[in-house]
């Protein structure tokens, strides 16, 4: 009888002991895992990088056909006032047949007549396309040409030929007044 009681107690004891070990080890595990949070998040953009994530561009002195090369989030930003011919030509293109179907209006954004704002980053592998500066190679579609792997964009920045999968990215932007664009 005494033996039976002892055994029962022993079994309960084992269970109690297991419980405390499991609790201790899993609490330590939770602690170890939560240390990972600061260790991982320290590599995310720092506060000064996040704060510098908007860029103001003054377009008052931009003549038709001219571009400004700016910097947005550490990447080149192309701001161009398109010429009347370019606008007419781009409007005439049937967007539905393109790799990344976008009309000129979608490229320019609402209420925007002729200022094309886009990132100067080829959507293929990130090189800077030519075409925004004076005398640069504009490619077969008279827009932008990426020399790294031969992507050709038209004057509205739409991909027409070559390996790039999508049109040049258009960042979010607003006109803060008549002449200043805030990008980001």
């Amino acid at each position: 009888m005494a033996t039976t009681a002892d055994n029962v107690n022993a079994e309960e004891g084992v269970r109690r002991r297991d419980w405390i070990h499991i609790a201790a080890v899993s609490t330590a595990g939770v602690g170890g895992a939560s240390i990972l949070f600061p260790l991982v998040s320290q590599m995310a953009p720092t506060a000064d990088v996040l704060a510098a994530s908007t860029t103001d561009v003054d377009v008052s002195s931009l003549e038709p056909g001219q571009s400004i090369k700016g910097v947005f989030r550490d990447q080149p930003l192309f701001v161009k006032r398109m010429t009347a011919e370019e606008l007419a030509e781009m409007k005439a293109v049937d967007a539905s047949g393109l790799r990344d179907a976008q009309t000129l209006e979608e490229r320019l954004g609402e209420g925007n007549e002729d200022i094309l704002v886009q990132l100067g980053v080829c959507t293929h592998l990130g090189c800077v396309p030519l075409g925004a500066g004076e005398g640069e190679d504009k490619g077969e579609f008279n827009g932008y040409f990426c020399p790294c792997h031969g992507s050709h964009y038209d004057a509205a920045g739409r991909i027409r030929k070559g390996p790039a999968p999508t049109n040049l990215a258009v960042p979010d932007f607003v006109f803060t007044n008549e002449t200043v664009i805030r990008v980001g």
């Binding site: 600061p38 998040s41 320290q42 720092t46 506060a47 000064d48 990088v49």
Partner: peptide
């Protein structure tokens, strides 16, 4: 910069 801008840099 570590103390102010880096996430948990002060820690």
């Amino acid at each position: 910069h570590i103390m102010r801008n880096v996430n948990y840099g002060w820690l």
